[in-house]
Computed example of a mutant assay.
Amino acid sequence: MLFTAVLSLLFVGAGLLLLFVLEDSFIDRRLHAVAATVTDPQAPPAALPSQFQVLPMASLPDDIRARLGGDRTGRLVEFRRGNGRYVHVLAARTAAGQPYALVYDVTDELTVNQGLARGLAYVALLLAVLTLCAYLLSRAFVGRMVQRAQALFRQVLDSPDPEALEALAQQEPVREFGDLARLHARVWRAQLAAVERERETLAFLGHELRTPLQSARTSLSLLAADPGHAAALSRLQRAIERLTRASNAVLWLASESPATADGSTHAAACMQALVEELAPMAAARGQAFALTIDPELRWARPQEIVETVLANLLLNAIQHGGPGTIAIAADADGLVLRNPRAAAEATGFGLGMRIVGRLAARIGWQVAFSRHADGASFTVRWDAASVHA
Score class of each variant (00 low, 15 high):
V187C: 14
G364F: 01
Q214V: 07
A342Y: 00
H388V: 14
F289M: 03
R139M: 05
A361N: 04
L205A: 13
V306A: 15
A33D: 12
A96S: 09
A259K: 10
V380A: 06
A58F: 12
G364V: 00
L236C: 02
L127S: 13
G357I: 03
A121N: 12
L223Y: 11
A92R: 03
A330Y: 03
V250H: 08
D331K: 03
I64T: 05
A327S: 14
A344C: 10
H320M: 07
N339C: 05
V21Y: 14
V106Y: 04
R118G: 12
L291A: 07
A101E: 02
A329F: 13
A361T: 06
S257A: 15
R144T: 12
L60S: 01
A246M: 08
V103P: 00
L22Y: 12
R154K: 10
A194V: 13
L337Q: 04
Q147V: 09
E163L: 06
A268C: 15
A361F: 13
G263Q: 11
E304Q: 04
V156L: 09
L291F: 15
Y122N: 06
A279S: 08
G69V: 06
A128V: 12
A5V: 11
A300M: 07
T107Y: 02
T218N: 11
A36Y: 03
A33M: 08
T347K: 06
P212D: 09
N312L: 04
A330D: 02
F153V: 09
L274C: 06
Q155W: 03
V174Q: 03
M1S: 07
T325E: 10
Q171F: 08
S25E: 11
D24R: 07
R358V: 04
L233K: 00
L127C: 13
I305Q: 01
